[in-house]
Simulated assay, not measured.
Amino acid sequence: MAKLVSKTYGDALFEVALEEDKLDQFLEEVKAVKAAIDENQDLFKLMSHPKVVKEEKIKVVEDIFSGKVSRELVGLIRMIVDKGHFEQIDSVFTYFIDEVKEYRNIGTAYVTSALELTDAQKSAIEKRLLETTKYVTFEMHYNVDAAIIGGLVIRIGDRVVDSSVRTKLADLTRELSKIQLKAGECAP
């Protein structure tokens, strides 16, 4: 359900942004509103509270955001509140941001390594990703996890390339187990 909500509202905002040639403006506004909500948990609690009536929530939205962001974005937030989906507003905004990135061929890559990578290694990874994907640029996120022992795990969207030593050892263990099972079956 949450995925449907984020897709429905995110797609609607994206289409309006394209139609009105306001993609950059809406992107900046969405990021600002998302940051404001993320930073103000009391606002989120108020807007999500079941005992606060919708009309009061809509008034809060208008008081906070009218005149600061476009009327289209205020209207979208009002609609989300009116339909009782405020809890999913973060996923709506994340979906919209992801759609804009996809439209502009900007990839987001999450790279996990066992050790901290040098700038040269990071540059080589990004260069290789640009050569092997449709993206023209990447937002790179690096993480160190000693548990992978060595190699890299790279995630772009729902695609994962796992060349970690941990995974290779697990695969080898699984293969050896199969061999042992087959050898055990053949014994008299």
Score class of each variant (00 low, 15 high):
Gly67Ala: 08
Lys83Gly: 07
Ile156Asn: 04
Asn143Ile: 00
Thr173Met: 00
Asp171Thr: 11
Leu43Gly: 00
Met140Thr: 05
Arg78Met: 06
Glu19His: 01
Val74Tyr: 13
Ile97Asp: 04
Arg78His: 07
Gly150Leu: 02
Phe14Ser: 05
Thr94Tyr: 02
Cys186Val: 09
Phe138Tyr: 14
Glu116Ala: 10
Gly157Ser: 10
Lys122Ile: 00
Ile179Leu: 11
Asn105His: 15
Pro50Met: 09
Gly151Arg: 05
Asp63Lys: 12
Tyr95Trp: 11
Ser70Trp: 12
Gly84Lys: 11
Glu15Gly: 01
His141Ala: 09
Gly184Glu: 15
Thr133Trp: 06
Gly150Asn: 09
Ala114Lys: 02
Gly151Ile: 01
Ala120Asp: 09
Arg71Lys: 15
Arg166Val: 02
Phe138Ile: 02
Asn143Gln: 15
Met79Arg: 04
Thr133Gly: 09
Val60Asn: 06
Asp98Arg: 12
Lys22Asn: 04
Glu62Phe: 01
Pro50Leu: 11
Val81Asn: 04
Leu181Ser: 14
Pro50Thr: 08
Met79Asn: 06
Tyr95Arg: 10
Ser48Gly: 14
Asp90Leu: 09
Thr112Cys: 05
Leu23Pro: 00
Gln121Pro: 00
Ala120Arg: 03
Ile97Lys: 05
Ile58Glu: 11
Glu87Thr: 08
Glu55Phe: 02
Val5Trp: 13
Ile106Met: 07
Ile89Glu: 07
Ala12Lys: 06
Ala12Asp: 07
Ala170Ile: 04
Glu20Val: 03
Ile179Val: 14
Glu87Lys: 13
Ile64Phe: 12
Ile64Trp: 08
Leu13Met: 14
Arg104Lys: 15
Thr112Ile: 05
Lys68Met: 06
Tyr135Gly: 02
Tyr110Gln: 12
Ile125Gly: 01
Ala120Met: 06
Lys127Thr: 11
Ile97Val: 12
Val92Gly: 04
Gln41Arg: 11
Ile37Ser: 07
Glu102Asn: 13
Ala147Trp: 01
Val161Ala: 10
Glu87Gly: 10
Thr112Leu: 05
Ala2Asn: 15
Leu152Phe: 13
Val69Phe: 14
Ala170Asn: 12
Leu172Tyr: 13
Pro50Glu: 13
Leu27Asn: 08
Leu181Arg: 10
Phe86Tyr: 14
Phe26Thr: 05
Val52Lys: 07
Thr132Met: 02
Ile77Thr: 07
Ile64Met: 09
Ile149Lys: 06
Val92Thr: 07
Lys134Phe: 01
Glu39Asn: 13
Leu172Ala: 12
His85Val: 01
Ile89Asn: 06
Glu102Gln: 10
Lys101Leu: 01
Glu87Leu: 13
Asp24Met: 01
Leu130Trp: 05
Tyr142Trp: 09
Glu55Arg: 12
Glu55Tyr: 03
Ser163Thr: 14
Glu87Cys: 03
Glu99Asp: 00
Phe65Gly: 03
Glu28Trp: 00
Thr173Ser: 10
Gln41Asp: 08
Ser91Val: 06
Gly150Lys: 02
Val69His: 09
Ile154Thr: 02
Glu116Arg: 04
Ala12Asn: 01
Arg71Glu: 15
Leu4Arg: 15
Val144Asn: 10
Leu176Asn: 13
Glu62Tyr: 04
Cys186Ser: 09
Lys34Tyr: 13
Glu116Thr: 06
Ser6His: 07
Ala183Ile: 13
Ala109Lys: 03
His141Val: 15
Tyr103Ala: 11
Val153Asn: 05
Tyr9Glu: 10
Leu152Gly: 07
Phe14Glu: 06
Val136Ala: 13
